[in-house]
């Protein structure tokens, strides 16, 4: 079973790392990351500031754009392409379990997503190494945001998997995933717009207040609520994905 899952995972990863589209994604991602980094530095150069460069980086518009748009692009083909090409038939008539397929697709997407953030981590390490240790902040202040990126990314990717399993059209899958992800991202914004929102609503949306979470984590504080919330939700969405995948295959 281990060997089988490895084969599935390797297959998915090789699609990510050997396809030209992946490098287009990487290219745009690097540009956006570079811009955020540049803005972060520019901000700090305006004068003495409370912020570390990490905090500033994870607060730019460019960072959030890259973060929100990358997952739909990564996940869009995962299941839709199998349905479109009909390869789901060859895949599922091999001795593999449905959950092994769902899990390996999810993990491959998550791994690719994580490698996309590596260059930014490199920026900070080089930046700190060049002498600005204080500007980068403590270890927790550097690793906190990356931990959060992993958690929130896993959640977004699970949403992308769900969207991709719902349709055979990659573009539609990407759109749907974007709607899910943006919908959840902007849920907390309702608080700011509608002042009469009930406190209960506020409490609930606090769980998905991604900007607030990033603020907390980049100050070096590890909040346990997102630590539990995001993995739970990811697992839940993946479970739904698993059922949708099975249902669509059986209906075919």
């Amino acid at each position: 079973m281990i060997r089988r899952v490895c084969a599935l995972l390797l297959r998915e990863l090789s699609v990510f790392y050997f396809s030209p589209i992946a490098y287009v994604v990487l290219f745009f991602f690097l540009i956006l990351n570079g811009l955020s980094f540049w803005f972060a530095i520019a901000l700090l150069r305006q004068g003495p500031s409370e912020l570390t460069v990490v905090q500033a980086f994870f607060n730019t518009l460019f960072f959030w754009t890259a973060y929100l748009f990358v997952c739909p692009v990564i996940t869009m083909r995962l299941f839709s392409e199998e349905f479109k090409l009909g390869t789901v038939e060859t895949l599922m008539t091999a001795p593999v379990r449905d959950w092994e397929v769902v899990a390996s697709k999810f993990c491959a997407a998550l791994l690719f997503y994580l490698t996309l953030w590596l260059p930014s981590l490199l920026y900070f390490l080089v930046f700190g190494w060049l002498g600005n240790r204080d500007a980068v902040g403590s270890g927790a202040q550097l690793w906190g945001p990356y931990l959060l990126l992993l958690l929130m990314g896993a959640f977004n990717i699970s949403l992308g998997c769900l969207a991709s399993s719902l349709t055979s059209n990659q573009i539609v899958a990407a759109m749907m995933a974007l709607v899910f992800i943006l919908g959840i991202f902007f849920l907390t914004m309702i608080d700011y717009v509608v002042s009469s929102a009930s406190p209960l609503f506020r409490d609930i949306t606090a769980y998905v207040a991604q900007i607030d979470h990033m603020d907390t984590f980049s100050r070096g504080i590890i909040d346990t609520r997102p630590l539990v919330f995001y993995p739970t939700c990811s697992a839940l969405v993946l479970l739904i994905t698993y059922h949708v995948f099975q249902y669509r295959r059986w209906k075919a």
Partner: peptide, 13 residues
């Protein structure tokens, strides 16, 4: 079991 599906779906890449 070895199964050959009707339209022989394959991964193009």
């Amino acid at each position: 079991l070895g199964y050959l599906a009707e339209n022989v779906p394959l991964y193009h890449d």
